[in-house]
Amino acid sequence: MSGATRKGVVLHLGVVALLAGLQFVLPAYHHGNLARVMVLASFALGYNVMFGYTGLLSLGHAMFFAAGLYGMGLAMRHLGLPALPALALGVLCGAALAALVGLLALRTAGVAFMIVTLMFAQTGYLTILYFGAFTRGDEGFVIPRAARRIGALDLSEPTTRYFAALLLLGLCLFATLALVRSSTGRVLIAIRENEDRARMLGYDVFRYKLLAMVISGAMAGAAGAAYGLLFGYVGATFASVQYSIFPLLWVLLGGAGTVLGPLVGTLFMFYLIDLSSGFTSAYMLIAGVALVLLTLFAPRGLMGLVRARLVPWLP
């Protein structure tokens, strides 16, 4: 067991080192893209804790991303909070909202859980629009460059931004790795595999699910807050249904229940959409086709296939 753990740690360190190295060779356009992908992949990693490891399919994860984004953004805009405490507040908002929604939604399961989370997310989105006086609704607002600083670090400067995104991604990657290797992670996987059996081994299934949801919400909130800080924009689009579907798509594509899957899926889909948006405005067609094909032919996703065919120890 410990051999596999070590291999896992080395693999993920390697991935982080590779991403750090890419920073020096990438042209500016892809450099910026990759920073964006890393933040969004952190969002997907959070989604994976719930969906991939605990088996909870949420259709409302945009609300946790948006909780981080707006928790951070509104605190900076209206309360004049500096970047670092605002970031922390964003994480807290994501986790707290997840706890609140979880307390209600986890009373349901399966299809009902999907719809309840979808409805709560929609409520959140509409609430942002309704309080347009504070949130500037659909239009959103910009966080001025001068405010996007932590100490001497200028988060709007591309290299700093890239490494900040990498730091977030690294934290989420290793947090996930530690979680799934822990006894808590084992219980989450047990709940995914056979909830009744887990309960009859003495585990309070509800509490574990809630924990998974809070961890997931905290990661989504961190990603949302970081996104706003690094790219300087806070808008209601990030709370819309589309941003609830995206993490599902990324995780499905990359491989649910694998630690690297969310990163691979996000990277792949980001560039697919980026490339196709050069040809047509109907670029979300790619996302739709991908969802249908994945559910039909590759429900385990890319890294799931890698694990099944090549690398059985892949975490």
Binding site: M284, A287, L293
Partner: peptide, 16 residues
């Protein structure tokens, strides 16, 4: 659960 994900895919296909 899988049909829900698939119909989300269909949503985007038809809409786009």
């Amino acid at each position: 659960e899988r049909t829900i994900v698939a119909t989300i895919g269909l949503l985007y296909i038809i809409q786009q």
